[in-house]
């Protein structure tokens, strides 16, 4: 069961990229993540939201939606657009694959999401849109303290 849930909608303006990642990070902070965990979440959200804006909607205006849920020790984030969709998702996920090399994109967005989060899934239908679902386990603070304690005692 979920302990908390939030939804966010905004238009596809690039100035909303910072707003989106900061909002999700603020929500995630309820799980008491480390600075690194929070940075990972921010980066992954930034990648997905940017993709919706520059690939999904291209130059057109549309709405980007974020839903997020918290459980005891996990954050689940769903980012979706009603943009143009992805023809071949497997290919799009390959490192360095980009359809916009002339805009100085590097094709690393999906690779970054995959490695910064624990799970990432992409659902997309051409002409209908794209939905990226990601999740990350955030260990409760007591466990982290315990890990640190074990490390300290193991070293002495």
């Amino acid at each position: 069961m979920y302990n908390n849930e939030m939804k966010l909608e905004f238009i596809s303006k690039s100035s909303n990229e910072a707003f989106a990642r900061i909002a999700v990070a603020a929500f995630a902070s309820q799980l008491d993540p480390t600075i690194e965990e929070l940075a990972d979440i921010k980066t992954a959200v930034s990648e997905a939201v940017t993709n919706s804006i520059i690939h999904g909607y291209d130059k057109k205006q549309g709405v980007v939606k974020i839903s997020s849920w918290l459980t005891e020790n996990e954050i689940i984030i769903e980012i979706s657009d009603k943009g143009k969709g992805i023809e071949n998702v497997e290919m799009a996920k390959e490192p360095l694959y980009t359809t916009k090399p002339n805009l100085e994109r590097s094709g690393m967005g999906f690779t970054i999401m995959e490695s910064f989060m624990d799970k990432m899934e992409v659902e997309s239908v051409v002409g209908l849109g794209t939905k990226v679902t990601m999740s990350k386990i955030i260990k409760p603070k007591e466990d982290k303290d315990e890990d640190e304690f074990k490390m300290l005692t193991a070293n002495s």
Partner: peptide, 13 residues
């Protein structure tokens, strides 16, 4: 304090 994949394109460009 924050950089995503846009930084890669920036530096390569």
């Amino acid at each position: 304090t924050f950089m995503d994949s846009a930084g890669i394109g920036l530096v390569i460009g």
